[in-house]
């Protein structure tokens, strides 16, 4: 397929996933912080901005840190490329650029999602019924993903779409773990029930976790689950495995591309890791490494598959100078 099309599909997948993950985290943060004292709430919102690597950008333009300003920043702010509405817009633009490749159903589900956000009174939603809005975003994103799976041929185009969303999700889950567990690895050894539920919910993982670990909600268990569960579709390991599977199909047979090597090494590492050892060591450094590898893999995918002409071709005209 065309390199550019592959790139658009890849980013469609990434942006839809980003919008969904952001909505998830906003939802849980918002409801987790209801009734908390102002200082606690402020701390909670700043944590969320850190997870999303948007803390500095937010601080540059905002003084007040509360539910309203942060939610607004993360949902509608057009200057924030990570905000939900701009993400959906970019997902739509990317899909529109490959309109002839995505199924009509998939296009309509993305386009209708975008149109729905356009006609909604988002300010009112954020004020009065954020739960409904976040639920809507999550459901629409799931609908997009589901429609893609059900209506697109599972060919290279679909693989790039999936690859994009898997790499995005792997990174988001790493970020979530990295920031959420900061206070507890700095001395406290008991993970608060509330906090753990919070993290699991952000990853839509609480039900699946309880089934896997009905008895003990320990720090170790929660980290292990989100990092290494081989079956839970939002765990880092699961995302890397899926990305690897798709990449293997995209590569020429018998060839191990650089992106595949990076992902495969990291996947193997996670597969055989011991969470106790990780916690005894520097878990944050480890999560950073994982994120770096995911980013590196995305860059290598771009180099291998998406390379097209530079933005401009320079004109030169030779002048007679006699």
């Amino acid at each position: 397929m065309l390199s550019r099309h592959a790139e658009h599909l890849f980013w469609t997948g990434r942006y839809v996933e980003r919008a969904a993950d952001t909505a998830r985290m906003l939802d849980v943060t918002y409801h987790g912080l209801l009734g908390e004292p102002v200082a606690e709430a402020r701390r909670g919102w700043l944590d969320l901005l850190d997870v999303l690597h948007l803390g500095r950008q937010f601080a540059d333009t905002h003084q007040l840190v509360d539910a309203r300003t942060v939610s607004n920043f993360l949902v509608v702010d057009p200057t924030n490329p990570g905000a939900i509405v701009p993400c959906v817009h970019k997902a739509r633009e990317n899909a529109r650029s490959v309109r002839e490749l995505v199924s009509t159903e998939l296009w309509e589900s993305i386009n209708n999602f975008w149109l729905e956000l356009q006609v909604r009174d988002l300010a009112r939603d954020l004020d009065q019924q954020p739960y409904e809005l976040y639920g809507l975003v999550r459901r629409r994103c799931q609908e997009v993903a589901g429609t893609a799976t059900e209506t697109m041929p599972h060919d290279d185009g679909w693989r790039f779409l999936l690859l994009g969303s898997m790499l995005e999700r792997a990174e988001m889950t790493c970020r979530l773990l990295n920031v959420r567990f900061a206070p507890f690895t700095e001395g406290e050894d008991e993970l608060g029930f509330h906090q753990a539920v919070h993290v699991l919910k952000s990853a839509s993982a609480s039900e699946a976790f309880r089934r896997a670990h009905p008895a003990a909600m320990t720090l170790e268990n929660v980290i292990e689950f989100l990092l290494m569960s081989p079956t839970f579709p939002r765990s880092v390991l699961f995302c890397l495995q899926s990305a690897e599977t798709e990449l293997l199909q995209l590569d020429a047979p018998g060839r191990l591309s650089r992106a595949l090597r990076v992902l495969g090494r990291r996947r193997a590492d996670l597969e055989f890791a011991d969470v106790g050892e990780l916690l005894a060591g520097d878990i944050h450094a480890f999560l950073d490494e994982v994120q770096n590898d995911v980013r590196r893999a995305a860059e290598l995918v771009a180099v291998q598959f998406f390379r097209h002409a530079e933005e401009f071709a320079v004109f030169h005209s030779l002048e007679t100078i006699a």
């Binding site: 390199s3 995209l250 998406f306 390379r307 002409a309």
Partner: peptide, 28 residues
């Protein structure tokens, strides 16, 4: 719409490159 109707690639200028007076498209 037409690309879909014909089942052909819809390309932009940057998807094409000329080499020795032959036109190619850049694919994955």
């Amino acid at each position: 719409f037409l690309a879909r109707q014909m089942g052909v690639e819809l390309v932009e200028g940057r998807d094409l490159v000329v080499d020795e007076h032959v036109v190619y498209m850049r694919t994955t």
